[in-house]
Nucleic acid binder design. Sequence first.
DNA 1: CTGAAAGCGCTTACAG
DNA 2: CTGAAAGCGCTTACAG
Lengths: 336, 336
Amino acid sequence: MVTIRDIAKRAGVSVATVSRTLREPEAVRPLRRERVQQAIEEMNYAPDAIARQLRRRSNETIIVIVPEIANPFFSGILQSIENVAHDLGYRVLIGETQGKQERLDYYADMVQTRVADGLILLGSLLPRIVTDVLKAGRTEPPIPLVLACERFDGLDCPNVVIDNVAAATLAVEHLIESGRKRIATIMGPPENPLTVDRLQGYRAALAAAGLETREDWVVHGDFSIESGHAAMLRLLEAGQMPDGVFCAGDEMAIGAMHAIREAGLVIPRAIAMVGFDDLRFGSFAAPPLTTIRQPTDELGECAMRMMDAVLHKRPIDQLKQILPHSLILRESTARM
Amino acid sequence: MVTIRDIAKRAGVSVATVSRTLREPEAVRPLRRERVQQAIEEMNYAPDAIARQLRRRSNETIIVIVPEIANPFFSGILQSIENVAHDLGYRVLIGETQGKQERLDYYADMVQTRVADGLILLGSLLPRIVTDVLKAGRTEPPIPLVLACERFDGLDCPNVVIDNVAAATLAVEHLIESGRKRIATIMGPPENPLTVDRLQGYRAALAAAGLETREDWVVHGDFSIESGHAAMLRLLEAGQMPDGVFCAGDEMAIGAMHAIREAGLVIPRAIAMVGFDDLRFGSFAAPPLTTIRQPTDELGECAMRMMDAVLHKRPIDQLKQILPHSLILRESTARM
DNA sequence: CTGAAAGCGCTTACAG
DNA sequence: CTGAAAGCGCTTACAG
């Protein structure tokens, strides 16, 4: 392995001069600079980033933790984060929790041990080092932290989300406007913060319209296609069959639509469907799926820019950034 | 920031003893060990991983480079790699090339600068540091490298793939057995190595059955849903309409099926469809999609285990690992 | 079992 | 503009 010392020797200069030609070439006299550059070329020298990081006390690496890497919603945000990180000069480590607290803590620990400078957290679980602080009555996170796509009250850290209550309300209002009277919902896990918000929006829209609510019209999945399928099966057996379904995720909506087709019912004639997230395949579903669009790219970009600000101790204009959602109209809610 | 020195001072021992209680606690006398552990607790000490890495000259980090993070096939493999990496004690950095050579080189550089110990490469592009070596007539990669899901002849590095020629042959044979006579294909980009293999399989199966081949039955997409849709539109306008289509990716198949439905044709009655990869949503498509299953989990696991072997200089039994594929039968190719 | 000391490969004030 | 030297926070032979 060739080090800065080898280059210095070969070029007949000090290691300081080698370091300078690498970091601020304009600060070294052209003649020596060229000698150094030639030596680097000849010896195929690559400076050791670890040594540099130790000396500089920062490593321009962040870790993003997601519940599930292959989940298309999360992988979309991850992609966006990675792109901005690349542009800003950060590297990104990836950690998957699978909903397990110990895995989350394992990854969060990486910023304590300075493997990463900061943590961008997707999903609804908080690492212990953060909840410990909350329990102690403080609100400042103990590590550079940005929360994306989910909010946690009482924590003073940058946070980028959409207004899930309003988005769910919008979705259900649209079902109502399309002439539906018996509107059910397939939600995420009951304890999930997103579920709480979206359920609230669902209930608000029904109440405002004076429509019937039934507890057996509120069913829960885990955001997977399969769970949407299973949940729809339960709805089809409800005391009264719904004529519209608001699904708190496009994947669950895909599964639900499959169940409806299997039952020999036609979408949207028998049952209209609204999803959430606006995933790629939604517009190629049968029929194309009306959905609430979350601005995935902007969520990721905003989260990464917030992280950059935190790490450079720049002020953040808006600690809680609320990004706009929108309703994407497709055939699954066409008026009959 | 609290360092090992602070702990040593507080516990009244040397830094060596602190380091030992951290790395090999059984080697230090219980009394002092406890004193150290207490000091660590009290001062909330987390050892600096960067310093350790510099000293140990290894950082248990790999980088996996993918063409596109949000592509479900790649994100599935990434997930699997990350899981095995976690179990083996590695961290994983992620890099997205977007098909751009400069981005690939940027990320590959991270193992040169020792940010990562090794590189797992998904996709069909090779970094310059590798092609340079090939050009120089050597076959040994200049960095710890594992190739997943695509092969490159002439490079002596661990490689895990399926037999794409055989898999494509199997897919087309199945279309033939289901009674199809006019079989078209939607392939990936022409220059893609996967395309070369799968096209070869397609042609072999048709030739063996003595079926008609037409150049306008071979169309190309870029593996995206949208490109599958566009490609199918071209096939529907071909001189003769096919009655079976082999799609070199499930996403393209989803797009293609959408085009077929839009044309008012029924799958599989008018046109049967076979996909490739066996992505989650395939079994929830309308109709459920027959496909070639690639063992995503095993691909990722095998790649990561190979990387581990490379980094520990353990011998690798099989440099080119060929994993089994299979045909998943669903309604999109039901016999009429 | 323990500690003093060297050293991992850099960067960067400091003096010249 | 340049170099000698200190130091980033660890680990680990070595001697005791």
